[in-house]
Design a protein around this nucleic acid. Structure first.
Lengths: 160, 160
DNA sequence: TCTTGATCGTTGCCTTAGGCAACCAAATAG
DNA sequence: CTATTTGGTTGCCTAAGGCAACGATCAAGA
């Protein structure tokens, strides 16, 4: 069956039930996200707040990058990113150098201190997650990661 | 292997990689959660904001229930729940009747109007999700739901 | 070349969600 | 009958994010 057919025909009862289940579980997860993120990063250096963590991860993956790219990737306005980057720069975790090819833009990169803090935070979060998932076999952990990744990929190409 | 053994021995390289992958995908999902929720509920009646939706779902599942149960379930303070319930009551979507067995507590339930709005919101969100997941076979959608449910269950028994 | 429009980043002002602490009323222990 | 605990509400605070406005820069066209 093609994707177009899948999108155009009415859903079967089974499909409706499946979508509804995803929708319900996502609602729970997203609703608990705050407390969850807090628990995830509480052990880390307190100045590295949960919000900053996501920025550092992405900068680490794709530096050098510009702040508007970061905003688009995280589906957040440039204003939000700008404010959070200012804090990260004041803490010495990132550097903003002028883009040699575009006088308006700045290029972001982790400082050595930023990389160290990011590694600390990452292993702390990983350890929290390990505690939580201790009873799962490794294949299930991998499967969860793969399903989440596939789902995240779906939201990649949305640009509103 | 028992759960205790799993929790106590050091992780293998493969396991570390698996936890790290889950951690990374969760970070992306949670970071995009705001924009995602907004997109999910934008089509619904605007007075039914994304935050209220999660409350209505839970009240629908487990009514009659008390507001402190709701707070514990969603991992937020009683204050937050109280304020949001006040709005929902003013909109006529829920009723708060005194608990006959405990003079301090109130029992929450959906009003007919609340149920109607919830059904509208649910089917709108379900439809958005269907558009997003159109290319997935039904088994994969079910699998995603099941993995999310299993993960959410892990956070059920946490009481900080 | 100069002008017009688009883009990058920043800042000000606003709303919303949520936490903490104080409080009241009701229940329960002694 | 007091003392402590618990359910719910409210006041005050912070953090995150959106929108709009702005300055600076780039790009395209007359």
């Amino acid at each position: 069956m093609t994707e177009a057919e899948t999108a155009s025909r009415p859903p079967t009862a089974g499909e409706r039930e499946a979508y509804c289940a995803v929708e319900r579980q996502l609602a729970i997860l997203l609703r608990r996200a705050n407390a969850f993120s807090a628990g995830m990063g509480r052990k880390v250096h307190p100045e590295l707040d949960p919000g900053a963590y996501g920025l550092l991860v992405r900068i680490d993956q794709s530096s050098p990058m510009r702040s508007s790219d970061l905003a688009a990737y995280l589906r957040v306005g440039r204003a939000t990113i700008s404010r959070q980057l200012k804090v990260l720069e004041e803490l010495g975790l990132i550097s903003r150098s002028p883009d040699p090819e575009d006088g308006r833009a700045h290029l972001l990169a982790l400082t050595p201190e930023g990389r160290k803090r990011l590694d600390d935070a990452r292993s702390a979060r990983e350890s929290q997650l390990r505690t939580l998932l201790a009873a799962w076999p490794e294949e299930d952990v991998r499967l969860l990661a793969r399903m989440l990744e596939r789902f995240n990929t779906l939201t990649e190409g949305l640009h509103p």
